[in-house]
Design a protein around this nucleic acid. Structure first.
Ligand SMILES: [Mn+2]
Ligand SMILES: [Mn+2]
Ligand SMILES: [Zn+2]
Ligand SMILES: [Zn+2]
Lengths: 119, 119
DNA sequence: TATTAAATAGGAATGATTCCTATTTATATA
DNA sequence: TATATAAATAGGAATCATTCCTATTTAATA
């Protein structure tokens, strides 16, 4: 069952890896794994809610942290950082003002990360 | 200069169109326009800051509204709605707590839009 | 008008992702 | 255990949005 390995690969990376990265990583353990298998298992893990997918510039990154949280992308090193917000009252703002029903959200901040702005 | 037409197509659509939609739309005026031309001009318009690009599920949508605003995507009809927030204090929250420098953000809410939830 | 630069059409190339299929492996059942 | 059934897999072909390339056309400039 290589789905386990795909899953643990994501969990251990702690870094929102791409399918390509995961493929290379799992390949170390199982040299004859194929891309088809990686993508199929990624899809199943997403379905089961064990991981979530983050589209970024048209390529998919995977996140083992399924708890609601947000992402900060550094313009310089392209790292993806997690962060959380104290309040999520912007949701109720939108529900009240626009009359949409909000079931989820994705907030992506960009800028310069704390590693890169030590100039 | 077909860049004008590509631009006005986006502006008139008011609906965050894809490259494919824009291609079809401009084709009505200039039947022999090519995809290469559409993409090249879209890239130039983005560079000039006249439009902005919104990646959604791996395909690019274009937005003629370059003023900072956010997007709500309906899970049912897949429409993309604009909305604005009163305060953007979540930016300072992140700057204070995570010590990143924020230069931009993209908030995407999903749910059921006010058209679709009239049940 | 002659030169140079920008724009274009058309299609090939790319790259991530999905799809397909024959084969292998696990699971259930008699 | 032997057999039937279902799930998983490798490998590669197909897809599809986007980018790249090139010869040709059009605009701008001296
Ligand atoms: Mn994350
Ligand atoms: Mn918009
Ligand atoms: Zn950085
Ligand atoms: Zn809707």
């Amino acid at each position: 069952m290589q789905r386990e390995l795909v899953h643990t690969s994501i969990m251990s990376s702690k870094d929102h890896p791409t399918a390509d990265w995961i493929f290379s990583d799992v390949k170390k353990e199982i040299p004859k794994i194929s891309f088809g298998t990686v993508y199929r298992n990624l899809g199943q893990l997403v379905e089961k809610g064990l991981i979530r997918i983050i589209q970024l510039d048209g390529i998919a990154h995977y996140d083992g942290n399924v708890a609601p949280h947000n992402h900060f992308i550094c313009n310089e090193c392209n790292s993806i950082y997690d962060f959380e917000l104290d309040n999520e009252d912007f949701i109720s703002q939108v529900e009240v003002k626009n009359h949409h029903h909000v079931s989820g959200y994705q907030l992506m901040l960009t800028g310069t990360c704390n590693k890169c702005n030590i100039n």
